[in-house]
Amino acid sequence: MNLKETWANRTYRPFLRQWPKPARKGTAWLMVFELMGLIPILVIFGIAQPNLYRTDLWKIGYENKLNSNPNMILYAYANHKPLPQVPLVWSRTLTDFNVAISVISLFLLLVKLITFIMKGWLPLIALVINIAMTALYTVSVYGQIGPDYADPRYPAPAAWYFRYGCDMAKEWGVYKSCQIAQSSLGITFYMLMIYLLNLGFAAWAMWPNKELNDGDDDDDNDSLYGYDAKPVEMQNMKNEPLVSATPFTPRTQAFHTLNRQLPLRAQRAP
């Protein structure tokens, strides 16, 4: 048996695989919940750019000896020292990164919706994309939690507003901004869970299964969410003959009687 015959007789087909019906339904419903999380995350990450509250919260933490000094870079320049590495939670990189992944998520959701309706959302494509998005949102969650060990005097395993709340931000006038920073982590974690569930469904579809390898594609008989489409039989409708009735009046009866008694009209009749 040559290589071509071996490939044709293979039992596991990773490319054109079918979705299990529960996984297909779950993926369809998760798109609704993904959109519900994507709208607020676009708003929150959008208003946080470029620096709505990042530096203010960093200063508040330093004044309360809860994290590093936001002026560390200026001190390094003034003292001709190597530039320190800014913690990810206080960096512009994290802010831009969050905006980027939110826009990418919106684009992928639109692509997934179109290809899912056209039955082109293959499990292999879903597996690769969900692995990538899970990794991106994991980095975002880690960055927002904010371990800050730049200053050995004030090590911070997490941002101060996650450990102590936002009460300290009231006297600085950034209480609402602090709440936005807290909510951004919550909605990011929500999106991470959505992509983990999508990843689970894609992995289930890619798991070796003889029914998914050899089964016929019954999607043509199924709706978007996997329900069987039942044909509707049209019943023949019997057309009843219309009975036309001539209005009956005494004058009409007299006219017909006179018409039958006219000799000339009777002769002309064929």
Rank of each mutant, 00 (worst) to 15 (best):
L110D: 01
G215T: 07
S177W: 03
P40D: 05
I60K: 03
L242Q: 13
K238H: 07
A158H: 02
K21T: 12
L262S: 13
A132Q: 04
A202I: 02
Y161Q: 02
V111L: 12
W58I: 01
K230V: 13
I145T: 09
V128R: 06
D222C: 04
S91E: 04
N67S: 10
P231W: 11
P40I: 00
Y154P: 02
F107E: 04
L199Q: 11
K238L: 13
L30C: 08
M168A: 15
A8V: 08
L74I: 09
L264Q: 12
A150K: 10
A205D: 06
L88F: 11
T134Q: 05
S91H: 04
Y75G: 06
N236G: 09
A159I: 01
F248N: 11
R260P: 02
N239M: 13
Q235P: 04
W204H: 07
V141M: 08
N236S: 13
L42T: 03
E171L: 06
G143M: 04
I41P: 00
I131C: 11
N67H: 06
T11G: 05
P263S: 12
R10P: 01
S68C: 13
R13W: 13
P14A: 06
E34I: 03
W90T: 05
A132F: 14
K112E: 13
L94S: 01
M72K: 11
D218E: 15
L83Y: 13
P155N: 09
